[in-house]
Amino acid sequence: MPLKILILDDEPIVGQRLKATLEKEGHNVETFVNPLEAVSRLEGKTFDIVVTDIRMDDMDGIEILELVLQKSARTKVIMITGYATLEVARESLAKGAFDFIAKPFKLKEMRQAIEKAVDALQQENPGNPAGN
């Protein structure tokens, strides 16, 4: 079942590479480098999974996390960052992030995180894996 995935990172390379990999897995992927554009998209559409960088110039990834969960509690949010500190990880997990990945990461790590999210979505809503 294809999932709707949004990826936000102000470094274009992240979206570019994740999109190629995840589309190959059959998912529908939208990528953003500008947090504000991503926010406006998130307001218009509910995604199954949101992958967001934590530190960006215009907006904090934690804000994105809060915003996403406020709108759709079942959406799984995966946080990525180049400044991996335990503190940030703890904060984002406490605020409801599904997983946390430190840059640079292997594509496999991200795939596994997505697979875990898919499992969680299925468990929450067995009849409809993508939760639609």
Binding site: I13, L18, G82, K103, F105, K106, L107
Partner: peptide
């Protein structure tokens, strides 16, 4: 090792 294409890395790295 990052040249192998298996990693996602950015400019900061």
């Amino acid at each position: 090792g990052k040249m192998g294409g298996d990693f996602v890395f950015d400019r900061k790295y």
